[in-house]
């Protein structure tokens, strides 16, 4: 970890000014990802603008019926907020499926959006990695890449976005509010994270100096038909191999509206709006779900066989979609606001 100075800002505009007035500065939220990255020398800011004192921790209803999540509200406070539990149980469950109680008590909503990939090579300075050091190559293309993606990849990067919460936010079609040197703006969730293309060093579409101030949820929370299915290498405290967040509006056995997103398979939470449309107006059935799953993975590309390589995610991902849609239509999963039980017996 390199040496740095630190300022504790007390307001968003002050934070933006502080950050832009220092070279090599970074925002410090809860620090659960940034401090980790700094200890591995993967991020080397020379100044930190600490956001801990900013008044952005509220969770409050919006006039349009939606809900605003303060960027500095912790993941734990968000998951256990009564309005979130009642109206957006998908989000609550998804947050609780990620990380640990200790991390969720500190990690912020804004920081969750900006956490960086867990690709082994990104995390190891001794290896080539285009995301960490553009132009050095991608070690994951041929090496062990169990953690890597199969959708929307490029020859320069096959890393995945590791967040659980973001998968639900994508399905919920949240809107990200940001403030920067040029004022405030909003970013649709689908546009927030990006695919690697030729510039895998860029995870998202934030401009220099921009700070996430809030996440707005639309009114529809799919509280009657939802699921978050997370498949991983142990029952808890592991990143997703594949995860699926589903929100449905049902009329009897007919799906009126469908939104779903996948985690663990791409550089961003993966949505396929054509696949969602295939569900809408249709009667829920295993056959339909299988067709939808096939559509989602039609263009998928695996990078090697065996358990160290990730081609298995294509079949696993399809099965996960089928299972998640079944769970959401039938609400057959265990729904417990205090514990994530999808992977428990």
């Amino acid at each position: 970890m390199n040496s740095f100075t630190l300022t504790q800002a007390t307001a968003a505009d002050e934070a933006v000014r502080d950050l832009t007035s220092h070279d090599g500065a970074a925002y410090l939220g809860g620090g659960t990802n940034l401090v980790d990255l700094m200890k591995y020398n993967l991020e080397r800011p020379t100044h930190l603008t600490s956001l801990g004192l900013l008044p952005l921790t509220d969770i409050s209803s919006l006039p349009d019926g939606g809900l605003r999540l303060g960027a500095l509200a912790t993941n734990a406070d968000t998951a256990w907020h009564p309005e979130v539990e009642k109206r957006y149980p998908l989000l609550s469950q998804t947050i609780l499926a990620g990380a640990t109680p200790q991390l969720r008590n500190v990690a912020t909503n804004g920081g969750n959006l900006n956490q960086r990939t867990r690709c082994y090579y990104f995390y190891d300075l001794a290896t080539p990695c285009n995301k960490r050091e553009p132009g050095t190559g991608c070690s994951a293309l041929t090496g062990p890449n169990r953690v890597c993606g199969v959708l929307g990849t490029s020859e320069s990067c096959i890393a995945t976005q590791p967040s659980d919460m973001c998968v639900a936010l994508a399905a919920l079609e949240a809107v990200v509010r940001v403030q920067g040197p040029d004022g405030e703006r909003t970013i649709k969730f689908d546009d927030y994270h990006r695919l690697p293309g030729d510039h895998p060093e860029k995870d998202n579409t934030l401009k220099p100096g921009e700070l996430v101030t809030a996440i707005d949820l639309p009114e529809e929370g799919y509280a009657d038909h939802f699921t978050y299915l997370k498949l991983r290498d142990r029952s808890s405290y592991a990143f997703a191999l594949v995860s699926v967040a589903v929100g449905l509006k049902m009329n009897g056995n007919t799906i009126e509206k469908a939104r779903f997103a996948l985690g663990g398979v791409a550089h961003k939470p993966w949505r396929d709006q054509e696949a969602e449309k295939m569900l809408e107006g249709q009667t829920a059935s295993p056959d339909l779900f299988r067709q939808v799953a096939a559509k989602v993975f039609a263009e998928a590309k695996g990078y090697g066989e065996g358990s160290l390589h990730n081609s298995f995610k294509i079949e696993l991902g399809k099965r996960a979609i089928v299972r998640a849609l079944k769970q959401a239509t039938e609400m057959s999963q265990v729904v417990n606001p205090n514990v994530f039980l999808n992977s428990n017996p």
């Binding site: 620090g31 401090v35 600490s50 801990g52 734990a76 109680p101 200790q102 991390l103 500190v106």
Partner: peptide, 27 residues
């Protein structure tokens, strides 16, 4: 582990459990 991957460093801050390895003391 010093990286928030094991929980051995757990302490309570204002009654809530956190990983002290990922916390900068000054804040």
């Amino acid at each position: 582990c010093d990286h928030g991957q094991c929980g051995a460093c757990t302490v309570l801050v204002d009654g809530k459990r956190i990983n002290s390895c990922l916390a900068l003391a000054t804040v």
